[in-house]
Design a protein around this nucleic acid. Sequence first.
DNA 1: CCATTCTTTGCGCTGCGTCTCAAACTATGG
DNA 2: CCATAGTTTGAGACGCAGCGCAAAGAATGG
Lengths: 196, 196
Amino acid sequence: MARPKEQTARRGEIVAAARRAIRDRGLAGLRIKDVAREAGLSPGSVSYYYGDFDDLLADVHQDAVDRFYWQRLHAIEAVGDPAAQLAALVRAGVPAGADDETFRVLYELHVHAARNRTHAVLMTALYDREVSLYQQVLRALGLSAEAARTVAENAVALEDAYGLHLVGRNAHVSPASARANILSYLTLATAAELEG
Amino acid sequence: MARPKEQTARRGEIVAAARRAIRDRGLAGLRIKDVAREAGLSPGSVSYYYGDFDDLLADVHQDAVDRFYWQRLHAIEAVGDPAAQLAALVRAGVPAGADDETFRVLYELHVHAARNRTHAVLMTALYDREVSLYQQVLRALGLSAEAARTVAENAVALEDAYGLHLVGRNAHVSPASARANILSYLTLATAAELEG
DNA sequence: CCATTCTTTGCGCTGCGTCTCAAACTATGG
DNA sequence: CCATAGTTTGAGACGCAGCGCAAAGAATGG
């Protein structure tokens, strides 16, 4: 054996480059040369590591899902109080602006999932993990398993929708109003459930 | 003047054909020849009516927005009781399955809005009209203008998100569970607001 | 310094999609 | 039946993206 392989590192750089390219040009307009330019490589090199372009997209999706999930997990681990954890979850679950890389990638691939099983599986997996995060915090607040499940699903749904509108540059949705609306729901739901 | 123009009718047929083509192949994979085949025309004819392909997409989006809005308006006009109207709104606001034409088109174009002002405007317009529909019904139920606004925004957001997951073939979201979750929110929110 | 293995590049081939356009076709009024 | 204006078509030009490949380049062990 002579020169050692650097495949893992290079692939990581290419995935990051693809993420930036998708942010700038969108998934539909994504070209190998865009990814290559972003990674500082030639188009041939991108093909060398990702002979099939779909494999790259799958890695990008997987990376975005992991990145998003761990970011949120750390966000709630940083605080102890369950109520504060809820707020932290909401804050991390709404994009700061229309150009947020991770959110853009996730929403672009969301639609892609309609025609590709790999992406549908990843999307479902992320949804499950997000629901699970909310569910844990809601249970810590005293909600029953069943109630926590429903409320968690709705919370994740609200995040997804407001995120979609923010990324799509809906003029009447802002990060602040989105967070406020989600929190208003969570306040309402937890109060009602804890009473009953 | 000799032969009369039929442009409006033909354009309508082409828009409908594009809608079906997007349902089958997605926006990213949309080709002129697909639209042409679906419309029973040659690719040249499609170009004759839509020299710029983006103009066709704009018409498709506009058509989907109108179609969706009027369908929902009729859904609530058919019933008189505000509570029943809410249920009718929710039913019409959740896709029946992953292959619903109108929803597929709307969600595909949703993401497109991030990079195209025309589509962003249409998306915002539809959002406004949907919120307005819910707001009317909620006010009829006795909610204040402010409360109705927030609840309406959240209801629309829930619809959007569950619709997105359904279209994306999320294995853990079904039309029935989506409707149930949205209705559980609306029940909770209206009851809480009417008490206070 | 050499052999080996991995990496990178760029060029050419190929297929595909769009756009253009002239010609054929069709419907209507005179 | 002819003139006119709208419609439809298909072929060809054109550009571009993906793929394969051969050759050059770089890192490591001996």
